[in-house]
């Protein structure tokens, strides 16, 4: 009667999504801090940081696409 798999899905998806986003953002923050070090490659570190922030946004956008039925049908072709 109780759908335990649904709880498992919520747990796994929550942990995976939150950890991935936090990891990516933290990496970005770290790279920005490294870019301010003496003798660091400012351009490389900064672009790495912005790549991390973009990745964050992409993960969130993917999540929203999965949740909205119209979007997931239009973009991913699944309903």
């Amino acid at each position: 009667m109780i759908d335990w798999t649904a709880f498992l899905i919520v747990a796994v998806v929550t942990w995976a999504a939150a950890l991935l986003i936090v990891a990516a953002y933290s990496m970005g923050v770290r790279l920005l801090a490294v870019a301010k070090d003496k003798g660091a490659n400012v351009g490389l570190n900064k672009s790495g940081a912005y790549a991390c922030f973009t990745l964050c946004g992409l993960i969130v956008a993917f999540g929203v696409v999965l949740i909205v039925p119209q979007l997931s049908e239009a973009i991913l072709g699944i309903s």
């Binding site: 939150a18 936090v22 953002y25 970005g28 923050v29 801090a33 301010k36 070090d37």
Partner: peptide, 23 residues
């Protein structure tokens, strides 16, 4: 877990400031 991860990733060796203001 996320809090632990965020602090672990942004931690800097050799006493430099971690600059966590970006958060």
């Amino acid at each position: 877990l996320c809090t632990k991860l965020a602090y672990a990733i942004t931690k800097r060796q050799s006493g430099t400031s971690p600059k966590r203001g970006g958060f």
